[in-house]
Design a protein around this nucleic acid. Structure first.
Lengths: 185, 185
DNA sequence: TTTTTTGTACCGAACGTTCGGTTGACAAGT
DNA sequence: ACTTGTCAACCGAACGTTCGGTACAAAAAA
């Protein structure tokens, strides 16, 4: 395990709580226990490099916790169920801010916007494929995938503002039904 | 019309795009065409004072565009319909970031978190009352109000990341049905 | 084996820049 | 004349970043 890989997890909560512009090198130095110069030894691109490393690290965690269950060979409803478990873990029951959302505005948007978009699109596409596999028509599958991710993102915001994880837990609990429910008309 | 009230609208887009910590006095000075000292003349509390003024200004706009329709004497479904029109206007068809979401993390959270929470709660309560008036049971009314705001917040994030307003427009279009739909079971 | 070299990790101090905030003087409005 | 609004110039502090150099261990040379 390289040194960077031991440092990155310590960078994560800082960026996650304060955003890209709200995070300073001093905060990162304190969080890692390293001097600012030492951080530059490991991340020659400085703050931007650390944020990039954190994004990749998180993309990996996300892929493992959320996407991988969707790509295995279980039945669709079990895949979704496993994704929900992964989501609860990944977002720490709603207490974690979403990195994609955090990195999608301000200065971070111009730096990481394209990467963020790709990550979100990957999630959307993976989810959509599972719904199609479950027999839902393609246009509906796309709409429902978007609606699901919308709900999760919105839930994370409500949790943050209201300081109450209930909205997130409800959103996760309702996800399978929302994704699979037969249309009314 | 006081000078402050002519200045505040010029501050809004800066805070909205870059967040509290991403916004600098230089940006605000350029956006208003005033020197930093002049800004301090109008807002002795500096950046924090300007952000506060902007929050109050926006709370007012929101109240007028979104909450007021919910408090008039029309029938519930018409109230909701009018709220949706207000939302499209207030969020500029989804192209505007939500201030509450922006001001709910990082340093801004400790400064404005309580105010943000109150604003959101006001919206929730107002919406809930309309649903109850429409005959929906109180617990359901609360859940659906939360779900509605969740969806709007999530939609705004998707719009931002995907650079496509379609998710927001769909979310608004589906709102009335989601709020009023009779339960399946 | 001992010495020398190389390389990695690290840090204290300082860099130039920008930050949020202040001062004092000038101009406009009353 | 007096208040109000404005600005250029400036302040100390913090920013992200870089530099010079130390500590130490592994590799190479003697």
């Amino acid at each position: 395990m390289s040194k960077e890989e031991t440092v990155i997890p310590k960078l994560i909560p800082v960026f996650r709580q304060y955003g890209y512009e709200g995070t300073s090198l001093s905060m990162l130095a304190k969080a890692t226990g390293l001097g600012k110069a030492s951080l530059y030894h490991h991340f020659p691109q400085g703050k931007e490099g650390m944020a990039t490393a954190v994004m990749n690290y998180i993309a990996n965690s996300f892929s493992q916790a959320v996407l991988q269950p969707l790509n295995n060979s279980d039945k669709p409803d079990k895949k979704i169920h496993q994704m929900c478990r992964g989501l609860k873990e990944f977002y720490n029951d709603g207490k974690n801010n979403c990195f994609l959302a955090i990195m999608s505005f301000g200065e971070a948007q111009s730096l990481f916007g394209e990467l963020v978009k790709q990550q979100l699109q990957l999630w959307l596409d993976t989810l959509e494929k599972v719904l199609i596999e479950a027999g839902i028509e393609p246009e509906q599958a796309e709409l429902r995938s978007q609606a699901a991710i919308m709900e999760i993102q919105g839930a994370l915001i409500l949790v943050r503002i209201l300081n109450d994880t209930a909205p997130f837990e409800r959103a996760i609990a309702n996800l399978p039904e929302k994704l699979f429910r037969v249309p009314i008309a």
